[in-house]
Amino acid sequence: MTYDSTASSLTGTTDPAILDELLSIRSSIDNIDATLVYLLAERFKCTQKVGQLKARHNLPPSDPEREKAQITRLHELSRDADLDPAFAEKFLNFIIEEVIRHHKAISQEQR
C-alpha cells in the first residue's frame, strides 16, 4: 500500500476550496513528520554509539543525572518554542526509555 497525501474522509462532503487549504496544511505536516523521522533516526545512530561505548567500559545503560538535566533543558526549549513542556517531557521520556532499552540490549550482546 502506498501513501496517498490526498486521502480524506471529507472528500465530496466539504467545499473544494476548504479541502484544498486543508490538504496544503497537511502537506506541510507531512514534510515535518518526514523530517522528524529522519532526525530521530540520526539521534538513535548517536545513542547507539553511546550504548556501544558504555557496554565496552561496563557503564550503566542509564544516566539519571543526564536524563534530569535533559528534561530541564527540554522544558526551557519548550517554553521558548511555545510548546507544552509536559508534552515535550512525555515525548523525551519515551525516547529515553527506548534508548535505555537499546543500551541494555547492546550490553547483553557484549557479554
Rank of each mutant, 00 (worst) to 15 (best):
F44M: 14
D82C: 04
D20V: 01
E42V: 01
L53C: 10
E42K: 06
E21V: 11
Q70Y: 03
K54Q: 15
P61W: 00
L36F: 12
K90Q: 14
A86W: 02
H75Y: 05
A69M: 13
I29M: 10
P85A: 00
S27R: 09
K45N: 12
V50L: 11
F91P: 02
R26P: 05
A86L: 06
T35I: 08
H57K: 03
E89F: 01
A41Q: 12
E89I: 02
Q52Y: 02
E76M: 03
S24A: 11
P61I: 00
D63T: 06
S78F: 03
H57S: 05
F91C: 09
D84H: 00
G51V: 00
L36C: 04
A17D: 15
D20K: 09
K45Y: 04
L59H: 02
A55Q: 02
K49E: 13
N31W: 13
L77C: 02
S27L: 09
E21A: 15
D80T: 06
K45S: 11
L59K: 02
L40G: 15
K68W: 05
D33Q: 13
K45T: 13
D80P: 00
Q52W: 02
Q48C: 01
I25G: 01
K54H: 12
E76A: 10
E76L: 07
H57Y: 05
I32L: 12
F91Y: 13
L39W: 05
E21W: 11
Q48F: 01
S28R: 07
D63H: 09
C46N: 13
F44S: 10
R26G: 12
E42D: 11
A81I: 00
R73D: 15
A69I: 08
A17E: 15
A55C: 01
A86Q: 04
R43N: 11
S27T: 14
D30I: 08
D84P: 00
Y38I: 06
I71G: 09
Q48S: 04
T35D: 07
K49Q: 12
F91S: 10
L22G: 08
D20H: 03
I18H: 01
E42L: 04
L39N: 05
R56T: 01
T35W: 03
V37K: 08
L83S: 04
E89P: 04
A81V: 00
T47M: 07
S27F: 11
A69T: 13
D84Q: 00
I18S: 06
L77S: 02
E65A: 12
Q52D: 08
D30P: 10
I25Y: 07
L23Y: 06
L74Q: 05
A55K: 00
I29N: 11
L36K: 03
S78D: 07
H57D: 06
L19S: 03
L40A: 15
T35R: 08
